[in-house]
């Protein structure tokens, strides 16, 4: 069932916010799909990376509810392949930041078992907290 959307000023506001925070000119995306095809996490994602670009361009704040940005591990595979030299890892980061700055943590430290916490490499723990907590 097709959703009918209206393109309003607030849509552009959202686009501008993400553009500014990520430093990436999202309107440059030509929707070639290179990023999605190469993304190691794409099969886990509910919205493909390229589609995120599209929805942000359309100012659809619904992308904030997608899992995609949390799955993006900043592996930079798309970054080195995008024919328009866009850095999607930065767009994911910007989306995460919008959420996290609203003081919503994606990860709860209490959920990690002691045994697991001991064996995990420190860099992974620090890294994941940087990405998942506000």
């Amino acid at each position: 069932m097709a959703q009918i959307i209206k393109l309003k000023d607030k849509n552009t506001d959202f686009l501008e916010k993400i553009t500014e925070l990520s430093g990436e000119q999202i309107t440059l995306c030509e929707q070639c799909g290179t990023c999605s095809a190469g993304c190691p996490f794409v099969s886990e994602m509910d919205i493909n990376p390229s589609q995120i670009m599209r929805l942000v361009m359309l100012g659809q704040e619904s992308v904030m509810d997608s899992k995609t940005m949390w799955l993006c591990a900043s592996c930079f595979t798309c970054t080195v392949r995008c024919p328009r030299k866009l850095d999607l890892s930065k767009v994911s980061e910007a989306l995460r930041q919008v959420k996290l700055r609203g003081a919503i943590d994606e990860i709860d430290i209490k959920e990690i078992s002691d045994e697991e916490a001991l064996k995990l490499p420190t860099i992974a723990v620090v890294g994941s907290f940087r990405k998942f907590t506000g």
């Binding site: 929707q31 799909g33 290179t34 999605s36 095809a37 794409v42 493909n48």
Partner: peptide
Amino acid sequence: ITVEDTLSRNI
């Protein structure tokens, strides 16, 4: 070949 069909969004 690994490619996204950007119209159906399938990989």
